[in-house]
């Protein structure tokens, strides 16, 4: 082998060594980083995304972390996650207990987004689904103690649709009502004003990522009454009208007065007549 080819093969070997070193190191690092990224996909439950994010993974593929949404948020609600915040680095989020979303009608954060990571088709803020409010602690919520509060209901921007007050019997006193706030996922935008306003030390109502907050019925489930309404008739053998086995002449009104005796006219009868009929 001549000296020159020897030199050339040496430099080729050095080059190949160099390449394989670089490729090996980068590949190892890539594997580690890939594994780490799986972990970072999990969003802490207190971190709420801005409006226009339907799916966390889609969002993480589109957001370039420029912070333009943060800059155009007039209420300083949105923040960019910093190193150490446990939210995918540099992405926008907010903490509802701290500063909730004010649901601006012109949605400046979505309009500011240059990539479309915040869905530009979201034009009505009531259609936003940033998360879902959940009355998560019924032990601490004072409404369940029979006290009047309803602060979460009163601050709700979609009041009566997203949160309504259901009245029920107060068993403890026996004579009062409980005024229970109930969240409806059909209309809750996840703005977090309820969580922000909750009067407890630690909020009893919290906005959670929808994925975490919401259950889902198996897709094969059908609710008979809905199906019946849709079809306009019963889809199975029609129900036989229920009959009670009562003494002759008596009736039972399920939704009304209850047991009705055939000749019960209690207040225009004299006591003697009633006794003569064998009734007490």
């Amino acid at each position: 082998m001549s000296k020159q080819t020897n030199k050339a093969s040496q430099s080729r070997r050095r080059f190949l060594e160099n390449i394989s070193k670089a490729a090996g190191g980068a590949a190892l690092f890539g594997i580690g980083l890939g594994l780490y990224s799986q972990q970072s996909e999990s969003l802490p439950s207190t971190a709420i995304r801005p409006p226009g994010v339907d799916n966390e993974n889609d969002f993480l593929s589109a957001c370039v972390r420029c912070g333009l949404c943060v800059r155009d948020c007039p209420y300083d609600t949105l923040k960019l996650s910093k190193l150490g915040d446990h939210v995918a680095l540099g992405t926008p989020y907010f903490d509802a207990r701290n500063i909730p979303c004010e649901m601006c009608e012109d949605i400046p954060c979505v309009r500011a987004c240059p990539t479309g990571a915040l869905d530009p088709e979201l034009t009505n803020i009531d259609d936003a689904r940033m998360g879902l409010a959940v009355l998560i602690d019924q032990e601490a919520c004072i409404a369940f103690q029979g006290l009047r509060c309803e602060v979460c209901y009163n601050v709700c921007p979609v009041r009566d649709k997203a949160i309504s007050i259901n009245r029920s019997h107060n068993i403890r006193t026996g004579k009062h009502a409980l005024f229970i706030p109930v969240v409806h996922s059909s209309d809750c935008t996840g703005c977090g004003k309820c969580e922000h306003a909750c009067i407890l030390e630690e909020a009893a109502i919290k906005v959670l990522p929808t994925k975490l907050a919401k259950g889902e019925l198996g897709s094969h489930y059908r609710l008979s009454w809905e199906e019946k309404e849709k079809a306009g008739k019963s889809l199975v053998t029609p129900d036989i009208e229920h009959k009670y086995n009562l003494p002759e002449g008596s009736r039972y009104d399920y939704e009304g007065e209850g047991l009705i005796q055939p000749d019960s006219t209690p207040f225009n009868e004299s006591a003697i007549d009633r006794l003569n009929k064998g009734k007490l």
Binding site: S61, R65, A88
Partner: peptide, 16 residues
């Protein structure tokens, strides 16, 4: 690696 990870995971992994 940064481009491969982006296409495999569907997110901007290097930006983490």
């Amino acid at each position: 690696v940064s481009m491969v990870l982006a296409s495999v995971t569907g997110m901007l992994v290097w930006e983490l």
